[in-house]
Design a protein around this nucleic acid. Structure first.
Lengths: 345, 345
DNA sequence: ATGAAAGCGCTAACAG
DNA sequence: CTGTTAGCGCTTTCAT
């Protein structure tokens, strides 16, 4: 057995309640006593048992976080933010992976709910009503998903797309292809919304292609379709897909970014993932994780607070690499006229 | 308050102990009673409180896992394995990120130790003795790190390097550069060991370059040094670096894999990360995570068991992409004689 | 300012 | 087979 509060009490020659107080409410014990307790605790290497504490206080000091796939860098980054903020708030983190499966999601949330103070649900797949039910009592904060009555942290993907399309339009592109990811996720829908909203005003024709697997190979395949569609601007589902597109374009002898410009969606740290030829819409994943925990801690402190106040989505930002600038001779706003582009590979 | 075992007992018209038994030791209660309890539990949506259970049983049903950086795909993949196996064993998982900091590592392990049945430490940075101390009672399993007296799951990086060097030698390369990662990690040392062991027998000169940042940009810089060193075979620290190398080689007009061949170290799913021009040494990250939990559960079941039996490292495997085959006319075993390669970019 | 006692949700003897 | 009792480690009245 590990060292308990009782051991500390014995060692310091006081009662357990005094130890408890010395640790939690230092003002309630005489300074000298407190000192003695602290020393004893340190000598014994005492670590309080959060579970036992939670049993009586009702607070576990634990936040749960559930993600569809820990292996996905996007969620790794969100986790980083969640863990960081939780640690700052003195909370530890319970992790669950749903393997992209709604049923598993319901299960793990249910199993988690009894031993955490709150849950952060990342890109949940459960329908709205089930989301409420699964929560079953404990506060829940959604990340990358909006659901009525539930607080959520969103990322402004639509605005990111807008920035990307503006950038492409400024480069002279008149036809932009959007390469859709695997399934119609909430955020995927947001991107299309942004594309449809931004394109007309900029005189840009939007072409929706896909779905493609979110891999390098997916990008290889998508590149051919994008060229066939006559698009000269490409919005890739993520940076991996974008790299695939670049590779295929190079193989087909298409000059990037002179003839075709590619913009990726950044799953993680932009500078580590993208090439100089690639501009990227950076998603505030870490920040979203932090914000979610922040919101959760707020909810815990003020139990009565309206949980679902609408918050502005976190800003996304287009990161333009130097070499994505338009080629020296290009007339801004002029269509490159690449509609007649022929396959060469 | 959530629904407790007491509520279920009341609803089913039995005592709490009967409910407890019906759930844990079904054979000890009459079938009809058990049925009644199960129904009541289901109707109420009862979820047992693991923490309370752990308080009395001494088992928490929780395994802790600590990684240096959740954002690193390598650890995301290990986490996937850990979580998967833990779930199969009915365990939930506690996550901690050390931000690559040994002191933080000691802290989180200490904080964790009181509320888990065991801990999986991934690529720990703490010195051997501190590792023992931090464990403080609970079983620990190391991943990607060997320490005397502590059970560990290793990946055979040295053998992966051997396979890569053999491959490069077979392609005719006589000079192979190893691009070292950021710091001298345990596994990094293993790779160099493998390189030094394999190269002489194959008539290959090994060149050790670096350290480089483990990024695309790191690869750009490394490529120039690799060329300058006269190497025609390159072993990159990871796939991201490898992609950077490829990009730089292309910019300098070097044909890949005809003139120079590049091999990456796979941080995650090989097929999703590498390009057709890139061969990769696949690391069994998911498997390592699974194996670690497996080991931990064993230890928990047989408390007396020798914890530190030496286990064979998990096999790594070179994945050769089709287009990495030697160019049609190349004579196998013949040195391409690229020592005179001049910078062209 | 400190100790004694009760109890959080649950399981494990110990009676029946 | 099932109910009663005790107690896991901790916090929190309630006394003193």
């Amino acid at each position: 057995m590990a060292v308990t509060i009782h051991d500390v009490a014995h060692r310091a020659g006081v009662s357990v309640s005094t130890v408890s107080r010395a640790l939690a409410l230092p003002d309630l014990v005489r300074a000298s006593t407190r000192q003695r307790v602290l020393v004893a605790a340190a000598e014994l290497g005492y670590q309080p048992n959060r579970a036992a504490r939670g049993l009586v206080t009702g607070r576990t000091g634990t936040v749960g976080v559930v993600v569809p796939d820990v292996e996905n860098p996007f969620f790794g980054s969100v986790l980083k933010g969640v863990h960081g903020r939780a640690r700052e708030g003195g909370q530890v983190v319970f992790l669950a992976d749903t393997a992209e499966d709604a049923r598993v999601e319901a299960e793990v949330v249910a199993a988690m709910v009894r031993q955490v103070d709150g849950v952060v649900l990342c890109s949940p797949r459960l329908p709205d009503e089930e989301l409420h039910r699964a929560a079953g009592g404990v506060p829940v904060v959604l990340v990358n998903r909006a659901a009525p009555g539930l607080p959520g942290v969103l990322m402004d993907a639509a605005d990111g797309v807008r920035q990307a399309v503006e950038h492409l339009a400024a480069l002279g592109h008149r036809r932009v292809a959007h390469l859709t990811g695997p399934r119609a996720s909430w955020s995927s829908g947001e991107r299309l919304r942004g594309l449809r909203a931004a394109a007309p005003a900029l005189g840009v024709r939007a072409v929706e292609l896909g779905p493609f697997p979110p891999t390098f190979e997916g990008g290889l395949a998508a590149a051919d379709l994008a060229l066939a569609s006559g698009a000269t601007g490409v919005l890739a589902y993520n940076d991996l897909v974008a790299l695939g597109v670049l590779s295929r374009l190079a193989a087909r002898g298409v000059a990037v970014p002179a003839e075709v410009s590619v913009v990726g969606f950044d799953d993680t740290r932009a500078s580590a993932t993208s090439t100089p030829a690639l501009s990227t819409v950076r998603m505030p994943t870490r920040e979203a994780g932090r914000a979610a925990v922040e919101l959760l801690l707020d909810l815990l402190d003020r139990p009565g607070a309206s949980p679902a106040a609408v918050r502005a989505p976190l800003p996304t930002q287009l990161v333009v690499r130097a070499s994505t600038a338009p080629p020296p001779g290009a007339a801004p706003g002029a269509a490159p006229g690449l509609d007649v582009l022929e396959p060469t590979g």
